[in-house]
Write a protein that binds this DNA or RNA. Structure first.
Lengths: 339, 339
DNA sequence: TTAGAAAATTTAAACGGTTAAATATTATCT
DNA sequence: AGATAATATTTAACCGTTTAAATTTTCTAA
């Protein structure tokens, strides 16, 4: 390994001079500068980031904590993070928690060890409050992405779930639906709460009743959604909803499959709107109407925010960025209610 | 920040003693050991990984170079890497190249800077040979995953594409097909070459002709596949293939959509087999027959291999791990040819 | 009791950079 | 020319660990 000393020796100058040339941090006479640059070239020298990091007390690395990169929601968010990080000269380490406690503790360790300068947390659940609170108190830079946590004073970047679900409900109402169900997701997440509450508000605002038996908890899972939907379809028409807002696109797919497997049609017998607008929603044979979440932008902004926070010396109030959602209308929401 | 010095002072011992206790690398008397542990506890001390890394000349970090985490092929592979890395106490940094030259150069820089101890490269193309060759020559640990490069003497973990495509072709033949097309992918990749050559070999072995107009290059893209497929369907029946092997599941989807949009049926008018077995292939409304690639395992083995390589002092011959594929039969391949 | 060996602990030199402070060099002014 | 100021360069401390070597302490046996 070639070090700064080798360069200094080879160029006949001190290590300080080499450092100054490389970082452009002091004037160095053209002759010496040239000799240094030449030595760097000849020996193919690259400064060691670890040594640099030790001195500078940073690593130019961010940690992205998510539950599971295999969940198709996350890759876009991760990419947004990475692109923003890259643009600022940071790298991104991926920390899958698999929703395991042990794994989130490991993630937190990374910042305490100084392996990363900050943490972007996209998998926050209520139970993490304690751990994270502690981290924040100790002054470590943290930003919540996608999911936030009540009572945690920290930067966050989330989608406007309230607006998203409202637009879905209003769209159904505009088509004449009055019996609208909601298939909810994982209870402990802010995302679920916001969408659920938004649904209730939008329905109430429109003077429509909330039927408890139409509020199905699916944990965001395809199979559970399938089962719940199949049950719903067993009810007589008057007892069934005519439309359903789903927590995510997987759930929507479960609903659609169950409806059709029981011999009914989407959207005629059941209109469906999903959430997230995953790539398959747009495919020819699915054509799922879905509320688009700006996943890439969430990741991007989160990374920018935390980098800003890391580089800024002065502390500032935690800020919350809320990005708009968009209802992407396709076939599964139908043209209106009939029968 | 609390350092080892603080612990030493607090416990009334030298920093060496603290280090020995923490790393269990020398005998320390029980009394002192206890005092040290207590100080660690009280001050909530976590050793700094950067300092440790500088001394040890490693970072316990791996770099995963891929073209785009947003491509649904990669998350599983990435997860395999991360799980294996985690299990060995390593972290994983994600390096999306977006197929841009600049980005791959950045990835290579990471290892030269000492930010990562090794590179898992899942996006290798022929053009990278030079850069990678240099790296290998300099003794940096590298492993190719999924895609390999001709003439690069380095560890690799890939799927048995040859076997995969052969099983697809044989399956079609067993159903009575003789006119089989292939929709190929990105030319420069080993994966494409192997699948293409495998196809040709399997067809030739069965005494079936290869028709150039049925070898369509789609670059692995849905839209290009759609167009190519639509063109094929415009031909009279005798001029058309009755079955097609697709480079990946997105291509298969493009084919299916085009076939159906032109009023034909899959599999009756065109039987389809995809590659990769992405999650949507298994859904009710797609039911795509596909050659399953052990993506997670590829990532896992690749990470294990490189960690092994990093930790081993002796050099050893580069090894190649080839993992088996599996034809997952669903609806789109049909029950046999008819008309 | 004490020399010598063994065991426990500490000192100090790395690791590879950055940078404040000290020093050397050059320029400026009387 | 000599004093002073300005500029260029180097020295050395520091970042937080690990660990070989030096030192101190304890143990063993004559």
């Amino acid at each position: 390994m070639v070090t700064i000393k080798d360069i200094a020796k080879h160029a006949g100058v001190s290590v300080a001079t080499v450092s100054y040339v490389l970082n452009n941090t002091r004037y160095v006479s053209p002759q010496r500068r040239e000799r240094v640059l030449q030595a760097v070239e000849e020996l193919n020298y690259v400064p060691n980031a670890v040594a640099r990091g030790l001195r500078a007390r940073n690593t130019k690395t961010l940690g992205l904590v998510l539950s599971d990169i295999t969940n198709p929601f996350f890759p876009d968010l991760a990419k947004g993070c990475e692109d923003a990080a890259q643009a600022a000269g940071f790298s991104l380490v991926m920390l899958n928690t698999n929703e395991q406690r042990e794994r989130i503790i490991n993630a937190v360790l990374q910042i305490r060890e100084g392996k990363v300068d900050g943490l972007i947390i996209a998998s926050a659940v209520k139970q993490d409050l304690g751990i994270l609170q502690e981290l924040v108190l100790e002054g470590y830079p943290i930003v919540l992405a996608h999911r936030r946590i009540q009572d945690l004073q920290v930067d966050s970047v989330v989608a406007d779930n309230f607006q998203g679900v409202t637009s879905a409900v209003r769209y159904f109402i505009s088509l004449g639906h009055t019996r609208i169900a909601m298939f909810t997701g994982v209870d402990e997440t802010s995302v679920n709460m916001e969408r659920k509450e938004g649904f209730i508000k939008a329905m109430t605002d429109a003077g429509l009743p909330i039927r408890q038996e139409w509020m199905c908890n699916t944990l965001g899972d395809y199979q559970l959604a399938y089962n719940a939907s199949a049950n719903l379809m067993r009810l007589p028409w008057e007892e069934r909803p005519t439309a359903v807002v789903c927590m995510n696109d997987m759930v929507a797919l479960g609903v659609m499959d169950a409806v059709e497997d029981r011999g009914y049609q989407v959207p005629a017998d059941m209109a469906v709107i999903g959430f997230d607008d995953l790539f398959f929603a747009g495919t020819q044979r699915i054509q799922l109407t879905s509320v688009r979440i700006p996943r890439y932008e969430i990741g991007q902004q989160a990374a920018r925010l935390i980098i800003d926070r890391i580089q800024r010396t002065k502390t500032m109030e935690p800020m919350e960025i809320v990005l708009p959602t968009q209802l992407v209308v396709r076939k599964t929401s139908g043209d209106g209610i009939y029968r």
